[in-house]
């Protein structure tokens, strides 16, 4: 194969791998949106906190296989907490103040992280070797493989739980018709809390698979929120694995535009995508659903 062509494919694959991570973070938006019609604009900060929790847990000597679930528990508690202290109150007032509140909670998390762990990026320790694997001339690392397997595995697992457990079916019922769900004896508020906890756990999990590839620092948060949000808006907040396609496409486009136009242009595709999506959805991202609530 032509070497130049191969380099392009290599870049697209590397970007696509990061795109899987965006899709996983965006999946967290879908989860909370389905049940409670709200999302956490500090989701990127949750990813970062999950990664820092993972680093801290490894620091005290836990093996990797305990670090990941530990970070997910931290993420689940944080997700639950954000819904409890910020989002629920704003939605009770029937306004969109939750958008601002989740951003504020995120900023608070960010400055806490800077105070506790400092501003510099840190490596995320992993048990596998650092050398790259080769697949028909395309090389990728074990850590990149972990992103792909982890993102797909996590989304599949949650989707299976939604279909094959009563708790999951109840969450689907709450997202279809909260009043009718209440009439079945389902505490719709608990279903919403559960979805925020799962979303938080997914974000923290994303942190533990992204961290080894990008290193972990306070700057990862905002960029991830923005990219995941672009992906979620393009693929739709309602549901579906369209996220994976949108995420991979965005990740690949970032790397290729960085290559073609210079590294300063890496962020351009995400922004263009977001602007296009917002322009093509004049009713707003949250559309009719919010209006019905008001």
């Amino acid at each position: 194969m032509d070497a130049k062509y191969l380099a392009l494919v290599q870049m697209a694959v590397g970007g696509g791998v990061m795109g899987m991570a965006y899709a996983l973070v965006a999946y967290g938006f879908q989860l909370t949106y389905a049940a409670g019609k709200a999302v956490n604009f500090g989701q990127g900060e949750l990813v970062m906190l999950g990664a820092f929790a993972g680093i801290t847990l490894s620091g005290i000597g836990l093996p990797y296989w305990a670090v990941v679930p530990g970070a997910m528990v931290v993420g689940a508690l944080l997700g639950w907490f954000i819904e409890r202290v910020a989002v629920r109150l704003a939605l009770k007032q029937r306004n969109e103040g939750w958008i601002l509140l989740t951003i504020i909670v995120g900023l608070f998390a960010l400055s806490s992280v800077e105070n506790i762990w400092g501003r510099e990026d840190r490596p995320f320790p992993v048990p596998w070797p650092a050398e790259a694997l080769d697949f028909f001339g395309i090389s990728f690392t074990w850590s990149e493989l972990a992103i792909v397997v982890g993102a797909l595995g996590m989304m599949t697992l949650v989707e299976l739980a939604k279909r094959y457990t009563m708790a999951g079916i109840a969450v689907q019922a709450v997202s279809a018709d909260p009043d009718a769900a209440e009439l079945c004896g389902i505490r719709s508020q608990s279903a919403i809390s559960l979805s925020w906890a799962v979303s938080g756990a997914a974000a923290a999990f994303a942190g533990t698979v992204i961290g080894p590839v990008t290193t972990v620092g306070p700057t990862m948060a905002a960029a991830l929120t923005l990219k995941a949000f672009s992906v979620a808006v393009v693929a739709g907040l309602d549901s579906g694995f369209g996220l994976v396609i949108a995420g991979v496409a965005l990740g690949a486009a970032e790397n290729l535009s960085g290559y073609a136009l210079g590294s300063g242009w890496r962020e351009a595709p995400g922004l263009i995508l977001l602007i296009l999506a917002l322009a093509l959805r004049p009713q707003g991202v949250f559309g009719k659903k919010i209006i019905r609530k008001v």
Binding site: T165, M166, A167, I169, A170, Q172, A173, A176, D177, D179, A180, A181, L183, C184, G185, I186
Partner: peptide, 25 residues
């Protein structure tokens, strides 16, 4: 009626018994 349109008939019925059923079992 307010049935859960995206869910199956059987899932709708199961939801009626939700408080009695195991959430994860």
């Amino acid at each position: 009626r307010r049935v859960f349109g995206p869910l199956t008939v059987e899932e709708n019925l199961l939801l009626g018994a939700y408080p009695r059923l195991p959430s994860f079992g």
